[in-house]
């Protein structure tokens, strides 16, 4: 592509400005978190004596171990189960293409546009009726259901892209549907599955509304849902509040940086291909 010089320079400047603007809020949280805990910090100023111990204090007073454990429990159930259900259904809709599959697909698509807020009130009473209100299951069970539209549509998009000749060849060799699914389809679905896994991890880890409403004890929530508890706990200390918020952010950034390549690639394929 032929681009002239001034365009390149202006472009770079604009980009750098945007990047700085993107990072400022995070840097600002860090600078605030490092001020002495009893101070009311002002703006974005690097502290003379960074108080890294604030993170330790925030970690302890915020019961972060307990919160992370609770979050992890929710993630460890929600993500694998959602992956399993959506892979099976995606395979059925994308590869087996059974009769009525189109109907199922449309039925699921309707669910894509339903905001959680529209369901939260009835979900509350439903979870109460099941008897799991105020336990982690109150978030786990609804989340699996709420993730189904996106996850199934996502996996279906993958399975549609797999050449049907592969399945036919397997069936000619006498493989059952289940064998074919395990030996041929699953290995091929790896990239799509791992991207979906990362997405589901982030969504579950960051989930706020469901835990706030469905689990009354903040220490049994997801870490994001417990942020309201942090706000109460550290309300008089801006440094500790920011330290607490950063502690919650860090795992998501780590997961993202580690997996970003396959994540962005698969996200793009999935969303655009369909």
């Amino acid at each position: 592509m032929i681009v002239n010089k001034s365009e390149v320079v202006i472009g770079r400047i604009v980009l750098v400005i945007v990047l700085v603007l993107t990072l400022i809020p995070l840097a600002n949280m860090l600078s605030a978190a490092l001020q002495p805990a009893g101070d009311n910090p002002t703006g974005l100023t690097w502290p003379a004596h960074p108080q890294w111990s604030n993170f330790v204090t925030a970690f302890d007073t915020g019961h972060v171990w307990q919160l992370m454990g609770s979050s992890l429990l929710i993630v460890v159930v929600v993500v694998p189960v959602s992956l399993l259900f959506s892979t099976l259904a995606g395979y059925a809709l994308g590869n087996l293409r059974m009769r009525g599959g189109r109907f199922v697909f449309i039925f699921l698509i309707l669910g894509l546009t339903i905001p959680f807020e529209a369901l939260i009130i009835p979900l509350y009473y439903q979870v109460q009726a099941i008897g799991v209100l105020n336990t982690q299951w109150a978030v786990i069970l609804p989340l699996i259901g709420l993730y189904m539209p996106f996850s199934v549509v996502w996996m279906r998009a993958h399975f549609i892209g797999v050449p049907r000749e592969l399945s036919e060849a397997a069936r000619v060799d006498g493989a059952t549907t289940l064998q074919e699914f395990r030996r041929i389809q699953l290995p091929l679905a790896r990239p799509a599955l791992s991207a979906l896994a990362i997405l589901l991890f982030l969504w579950t880890w960051n989930q706020f509304l469901l835990p706030v409403v469905l689990i009354s004890d903040p220490l049994s929530r997801t870490v994001a849902g417990a942020l309201t508890f942090f706000q109460g706990q550290y309300s008089s200390s801006i440094p500790l509040l920011n330290a607490g918020a950063l502690i919650i952010i860090v795992p998501t950034i780590v997961v993202f940086i580690v997996f970003q390549r396959q994540f962005i690639r698969a996200l793009l394929q999935g969303a655009v291909k369909g």
């Binding site: 008897g131 209100l133 706030v212 009354s216 004890d217």
Partner: peptide, 21 residues
Amino acid sequence: VTRDTFQNLTANAPKLLASST
């Protein structure tokens, strides 16, 4: 002792009291 913000606690209280636990 479990704690939550005033806002959350007042919103949840009737539901908490009506729950099985």
